[in-house]
Write a protein that binds this DNA or RNA. Structure first.
Length: 722
DNA sequence: GGGCCCGCAGGG
DNA sequence: CCCTGCGGGCCC
């Protein structure tokens, strides 16, 4: 794997693409990052000696311009040519301005990207005005650039945090480690190898940057619909702390109630009108504990299969969960492998080895149909995809709409392959951008050179970017559904809505709490530390959590290490061993500064939250109310209310009764599960399975309580492609 | 952490 | 009705 893109030479000088050590004259050094590259493996090489000296590598080109280099012959995704031309032209103009220093150029580029520029093309297009109302002094101004990534000197994009508390862009960090560097670029502390190989995005910092960018709005209690993704990931890992986690038995559970009213063959986003319970639809960043919950909210219906689709109709959604080793995830685009070709004998559901060829049939055909028609495909990422930096820490997360731009069959044991490219109006959960996707050019896929059955879309896509509206939408009518939709009872909707609103809160302090609570003390973090697994705690809380346990240092007695497995100290939020990290806790000063700054801003404007709450209430927003989650889970509020009306209803032998009766917002659907009996004779008492229960409490993702129509696409700014 | 195996849902 | 499947719990 890893053959798709262009890669530099590693620390040992070996080209990461062709794995050979290039001759001196085959080496190209980037003028910006000084990384060596193998010229023979580049898609386009500088033509003259002068060009060679001024050569900028593909990474830097894409980092600075937010756009990958576009080699000759690259297909442009629709719209890119038109709409982003002016932006690209503006970037080129900056680059060409010899009166500017590199630093000034970077600043200008950043302004351009973040929509603050107020420059020519704003007026030209007249559609990029909204976000920054005037030049108010926001949190970022106050911080004066301390948050910037020390590689690119810009706000960290997809921020990752080293155990020593320093923050970088994921891309910059990866480039650093790819050169064989194993120490922090800022303080030279050692970077643990696991973090170097699998850096995880620090979702609190994503939130911090988003809030800082929009700090004016935050204080207004204003829109922040993009946050909901974050705190969900950053919540304590209930699987290790609560009763619910100890409960077992979802393995063979029946599906719970579907809470949305879209048919199973519905294409595109789940809109608010099909979400009678929350009236907000499924938003980018929504998280679920498992595939059952994901299914209940309509993001992806099949509970084992990774592809939802019908060969005649098209595919509606996919899940990325690492089931196929060839998959490659670059966030805004990824390569997906079709299903099939595996030996499932022995009553298996999955298998690792690809034992025979796949064909474009069934689900694989469905994906191909979606490719050819340019249908929107919902994408859900699972924590089980361990190799991706974009995977959520736990559970599953809705990452928005993608389109399949091409598909083909790969050589070897033939598998169907699909190139997915993001095209959603909301920003991806890992960016701190305020805007969604802008049409982008396709990445270069090297495996295509040896591919067969290459399929590309011939006609215009059904889902595309409308230049007039500056947004992605249906350009053709959506394919009609052939499935029936289950209704949701009116009174249940109302009951649920009231219950949800009860748990709703929108004060600034609550928002800070949601995003920045320490997972131990549940207060807004003081002196935050970020673990290598990207969880955040107060320094003192984390220290306190292990105070009873004496850490046995790694010294040996009689040659034998004292630290056995039992002495390993696990992150309070996940099973990661953080023993080493605990030995030398470093505060994430940059995160701390943002939080402090936001906090003091919030305190300045303490009052106006009441009205804001009123307004927001109308949209039926809800929130997690996560701070009480352990004792009285937020969902139980709802469940209890409803259950008290209908006590012990689904108690019965037929497990599907409640489903068929549409006991709607009952978040807890009960069902029985038969357990396999292991030989020992007639013990009838145990053999009928235990009652299993699924609650939806974890499925309630946060809504910032604001669906104000002013939210949408703001500035057209270019998204970093890879 | 790896292997095993189950019911269930959905496509055809 | 049969076949498939990027889950999930459990046991080791």
């Amino acid at each position: 794997m890893g053959q798709t893109t262009q890669l530099p030479c590693a620390g040992d000088g070996i080209c990461m693409l062709c794995k050979t050590k290039p001759l001196e004259e085959e080496k190209l050094t980037c003028k910006t990052c000084v990384t060596p590259w193998h010229a023979n493996c580049l898609l386009s090489r500088p033509a003259t000696l002068a060009d060679t000296l001024q050569w900028e590598c593909p990474d830097c080109t894409s980092l600075s311009a937010g756009q990958p280099p576009v080699p000759a012959g690259t297909v442009l995704v629709d719209g890119a040519g038109e709409s982003s031309n002016s932006l690209i032209a503006a970037i080129r103009a900056i680059e060409a301005d010899t009166s500017l220093t590199e630093r000034q150029k970077a600043n200008k580029r950043q302004q351009l990207m973040s929509g603050k520029a107020g420059s020519e093309e704003d007026d030209e297009n007249g559609k990029k005005k909204k976000i920054h109302k005037g030049g108010e002094k926001d949190v970022l101004d106050v911080l004066g650039g301390t948050l910037n990534c020390s590689f690119c000197m810009q706000l960290p994009d997809r921020p990752v945090t080293t155990p020593c508390g320093h923050n970088f862009c994921l891309k910059c960090f990866q480039k650093w480690t790819a050169q064989g560097k194993s120490t922090c670029a800022k303080c030279r502390h050692i970077i643990p190898s696991k973090m170097a190989s699998q850096p995880r995005i620090n979702s609190s910092l994503v939130a911090a940057i988003r809030m800082a960018k929009m700090s004016k709005n935050v204080v207004d209690g204003g829109p922040s619909r993009v946050y909901h993704c974050v705190h969900n990931q950053n919540r304590p890992d209930q699987a290790y702390t609560t009763e619910r986690a100890k409960k077992r038995g979802n393995a063979n559970a029946a599906s719970g109630k579907i809470f949305v009213t879209v048919p199973h063959d519905h294409f595109g986003p789940i809109p608010p009108e099909n979400d009678p319970i929350r009236n907000r639809g499924v938003l980018v960043g929504d998280c679920w504990e498992d595939r059952y919950e994901c299914r209940q909210w309509g993001a992806h219906f099949p509970h084992v299969s990774g592809i939802a689709g019908q060969s005649k109709h098209g595919a509606q959604s996919v899940v990325l969960s690492g089931g196929y080793m060839d998959d490659e995830d670059h966030g805004e685009w990824f390569l997906y492998t079709g299903s099939g070709g595996r030996d499932l004998s022995g009553n298996k559901r999955t298998s690792k080895e690809q034992s025979f060829d796949q064909q474009f049939e069934k689900s694989n055909k469905a994906l191909q149909v979606s490719c050819m028609n340019g249908y929107p495909v919902r994408v859900v990422r699972s924590h089980k995809e361990k190799r991706s930096s974009y995977a959520p820490e736990k559970g599953l997360r809705y990452d928005g709409i993608y389109r399949i731009e091409m598909c083909w069959r790969k050589v070897g044991i033939q598998v169907c392959r699909y190139l997915f490219v993001r095209c959603d109006n909301d920003p991806a959960p890992w960016t701190s951008d305020e805007h969604g996707d802008w049409p982008r050019s396709l990445p270069v896929i090297s495996e295509l050179n040896e591919a067969t059955d290459i399929t590309e879309r011939k006609e215009s896509p059904s889902w595309g970017f409308d230049d007039g509206d500056s947004m992605w939408k249906w350009l053709k009518t959506a394919p009609p559904s052939s499935k029936r939709v289950e209704e949701v009872k009116e009174e249940d909707v109302n009951t649920a809505r009231i219950a949800i609103r009860k748990a709703h809160n929108t004060s600034v302090r609550d928002k800070l709490l949601k995003e920045f609570s320490c997972l131990i003390c549940r207060q807004v973090m003081v002196s935050p530390v970020t673990t290598p697994c990207a969880h955040n705690f107060c320094k003192s809380c984390l220290e306190g959590a292990f105070v009873g346990q004496t850490f046995v240092r790694e010294r040996s007695r009689g040659g034998r290490s004292l630290r056995s497995k039992k002495n390993v100290m696990k992150c309070p939020s996940c099973p990661t061993d953080i023993s080493d990290f605990l030995q030398n806790l470093q505060v994430n000063r940059e995160l701390m500064d943002v939080i402090e700054s936001l906090k003091s801003k919030a305190e300045e404007n303490e009052d106006p939250e009441e009205e804001a709450q009123e307004d927001a209430g109308g949209s039926g927003g809800n929130s997690f109310a996560e701070s009480e989650n352990e004792e009285t889970s937020s969902g139980t509020d709802i469940g209890d209310d409803l259950n008290s009306e209908k006590p012990s209803e689904a108690e019965g032998d037929e497990n599907k009764s409640s489903v068929e009766k549409h006991e709607v917002p009952v978040p807890a659907v009960k069902h029985t599960v038969k357990r396999k009996q292991v030989d020992d004779g007639g013990n009838s008492s145990e053999e009928v399975g235990a009652k299993k229960m699924r609650t939806s409490s974890e499925a309630e993702t946060v809504d910032e309580g604001n669906d104000s129509p002013s939210s949408p696409l703001h500035v057209a700014s270019e998204n970093d492609f890879q």
